[in-house]
Amino acid sequence: MHRKLIRTLFPWLILLPLLILLLYSLTASLRAPISPFPQTKKISASPTCDLFKGQWNRDPNRRPIYDETCSFHRNAWNCLRNQRDNMGSINSWKWVPQTCDLPQIDPFRFLDLMRNRNIGFVGDSLNENFLTSFLCSLRVADLGAKKWKRKGAWKGAYFPNFNVTVAYHRAVLLAKYKWQPKHSASGDQSQSEGVYRVDVDIPADDWANITNFYDVLVFNTGHWWGYDKFPKETPLVFYRAGRPLLPALEMLDGLKLVLKHMVSHIQKEIHSKTIKFWRLQSPRHFYGGEWNQNGSCLFNEPLQESQTFGLIQAKMG
């Protein structure tokens, strides 16, 4: 009797777990948001695919995938809401690599691929501005996205339908720096005279202890390495191993040394499984003055390659 019962139950002991797995997979697929974006081919991973070699082309049918209601925009930066001139023309430009396809992002597919992972951006406003657009794009796939500013993040979002966090940590020089006021003969500290101490071999506190939280990290620096941000009257003074570097370094040499040490730190201290990217500097977009001197962004077309080098190098002069 006992053996007969076992023979009767044995097939069910095998089938029951399979049925449970089948039901779970069906319910999971029903819960997953369905992307309204057309299926696109994967970007070619062949050696001939260089995403950085290409040109800007107009596509009159191209539109942003988000609108002016995105809550991750700063009001002053929301060009759609503020009705900046020629937005239709500006948004019609797209980057077309020479040797491969670069489809528009599908936020549903992207978040599904990044499910249960976290993405961190570290650097200056170049990363912050990209993050704002990125969050607005991803929000299309998860309208329940919430603002997220934990772990010292300057800005970020949590996408609950996918358990994905995307955030930005502000560290404009990447290296640690602080204001050192000048002391008078009486020992008083000046509020307007002094220098900025930069420890070229120490990462900024804003990101030094948060890298283990992220599965992907995107670094950048560049726009703050100029005399418009740090005038010669209050210069950057570079330190290594706690001591000032002598003779004093010029700003561009200091930048090179910071990059060397930060890259070394990233390679040694951040887990090898973490995917790491480095973003290059972009040209300034201000015309008729700096950002704090009534400068405006009047461009409606991408800059030509011959125009970009001078706009970047002008900051170091």
Rank of each mutant, 00 (worst) to 15 (best):
F108A: 07
W148I: 05
M114S: 08
F134H: 12
W12N: 05
D67N: 15
D101V: 11
D142W: 00
F10G: 03
Q307H: 08
V122A: 04
K178D: 13
K94H: 11
G254D: 02
S25P: 00
L138K: 01
N163G: 05
V218W: 03
S272P: 04
R109Y: 07
Y214N: 06
D50E: 08
I6R: 03
K276S: 00
R84A: 12
E250D: 15
K53Q: 14
G194Y: 01
I20P: 09
T99V: 08
T48K: 12
N161K: 14
R197S: 01
Y287T: 14
S133N: 15
A145R: 02
T221P: 07
P107L: 12
P11Y: 01
P247N: 04
V195A: 05
V122H: 02
M1L: 14
A171Q: 00
A208P: 06
G120K: 03
E250K: 12
R58E: 11
E305P: 06
F162D: 07
A28L: 09
N163L: 04
V122N: 04
D50A: 06
V258T: 10
I119M: 14
N86Y: 08
P247Q: 01
N57F: 11
E68V: 09
K146A: 13
I270D: 03
L174Y: 01
G226N: 14
H169S: 01
R58Q: 12
D206P: 00
E68S: 15
Q191G: 13
L311I: 11
V198L: 10
